[in-house]
């Protein structure tokens, strides 16, 4: 449920770091708690983000939630497929449902490993 290759935040985002770039999404736990996602708002390409700053919004039938940047940096790509097909976030949160790609400046403090995140989620429940 929580792939080993990813880093996690307590706000339920995941970060995949690869050659100075980071891909950001929300975890399976997050998409499951949100329920059916119906709208996704993402930043403009080129936007400078601070770590822990809100980078966009995910809206489900139940709630509207901010997505926080797990690292500082510059937005390089956003997943435009989500605008027409927000259900990708529910169907494939670690793949087709990715949100943004960031050129990493600095990582947020205290990112969690998969097992730490799993423990965190278990405590939250």
């Amino acid at each position: 449920m929580y792939p080993e290759r990813l880093k996690y935040t307590e706000e339920h985002e995941w970060l995949l770091v690869k050659e100075g770039r980071g891909i950001v999404g929300i975890t399976d736990y997050a998409q499951n708690s949100l329920g059916d996602v119906v709208f996704v708002d993402l930043p403009e390409v080129g936007k400078k983000l601070k770590a822990n700053e809100s980078l966009g919004v995910v809206e489900s039938v139940k709630a509207v939630s901010d997505i926080y940047a797990p690292c500082a940096g510059i937005v390089k790509r956003v997943n435009e497929n989500l605008f027409a097909a927000p259900e990708l976030l529910n169907d494939d949160p670690y793949g087709e449902g990715w949100l943004v790609e960031i050129e990493i400046g600095e990582l947020a403090e205290a990112l969690l490993t998969a097992s730490e995140y799993e423990k965190f989620v278990a405590e939250e429940e």
Binding site: D36, V38, F39, V61, P86, E87
Partner: peptide
């Protein structure tokens, strides 16, 4: 019950 997901999507 209405299909709220489809209504929004």
């Amino acid at each position: 019950r209405l299909d709220e997901t489809q209504a929004a999507r």
